[in-house]
């Protein structure tokens, strides 16, 4: 069992690195292609329909890859009314685990929904790019929800073991905390 979990987490870490690389690739292709479009149109009087379609698919990929990393680094938008009132770290830990379990359940529901969604698209495939079907591009949606489930699970295991989970920090924080 432990081997399975360790293997899963190792695989998960690889997936996270791939997600980051993909984000970088997609964002920069979006920048280059959309800037190229501005140049092409204003200087060479050329316009390409696929640019807009590419950019819109790019936004979806960025949204779901980014959201899946936001789960890994616990950067999701949340409205925390009560938990800071909890006095002991022990209680806080319990709440955090409860929330991660809740998030796992919801992500599982969303994953089921998005698999149904992709299957529905697959029934009558359409093609925005020559040979690649739209349903293939939309696979990112269930994929990212599944990665989120693993992220939550890994966070639960870390919390139980007293380890800290990976974090992301902004450099500007130092400026923010100056008084």
């Amino acid at each position: 069992m432990n081997d399975f979990i360790n293997g899963l987490f190792a695989f998960h870490r690889v997936i996270i690195v791939i997600e980051k690389a993909l984000l970088f690739l997609i964002l920069f292709s979006m920048i280059i292609i959309s800037f190229g479009q501005v140049i092409a149109r204003n200087i060479f009087d050329q316009g390409y329909m696929w640019v807009d379609i590419f950019l819109r698919h790019g936004v979806i990929w960025i949204a779901f890859l980014g959201a899946s990393l936001a789960t890994e680094y616990r950067q999701h938008i949340k409205i925390d009314v009560f938990s800071h009132m909890l006095s002991t770290p022990y209680k806080r830990k319990q709440i955090e685990i409860a929330i991660s379990v809740f998030q796992m359940v919801i992500c599982a529901l969303l994953a089921i929904g998005s698999i149904e969604y992709v299957m529905m698209l697959k029934e009558y495939p359409t093609y925005d790019f020559k040979w690649f079907p739209v349903w293939g591009l939309r696979m990112i949606v269930p994929f990212s929800f599944v990665v989120m489930i693993v992220s939550c699970f890994s966070h639960i295991v870390n919390t139980l073991a007293g380890r800290s989970s990976p974090t992301i920090t902004y450099d500007s924080e130092s400026i923010m905390n100056e008084k």
């Binding site: 959201a67 789960t71 999701h76 938008i77 949340k78 409205i79 925390d80 009314v81 009560f82 938990s83 709440i95 409860a98 929330i99 809740f102 998030q103 359940v105 919801i106 992500c107 529901l109 969303l110 089921i112 929904g113 998005s114 149904e116 969604y117 529905m120």
Partner: peptide, 28 residues
């Protein structure tokens, strides 16, 4: 929600369950 679960789980999870359990429609 009040204890700080990610907002998307509240809104998105709520939407999935409302569609599925209340409106009897696909979770997709």
């Amino acid at each position: 929600f009040l204890f700080g679960a990610p907002l998307f789980t509240i809104i998105g999870g709520g939407a999935v369950l409302l569609f599925y359990l209340f409106a009897h429609q696909s979770m997709a």
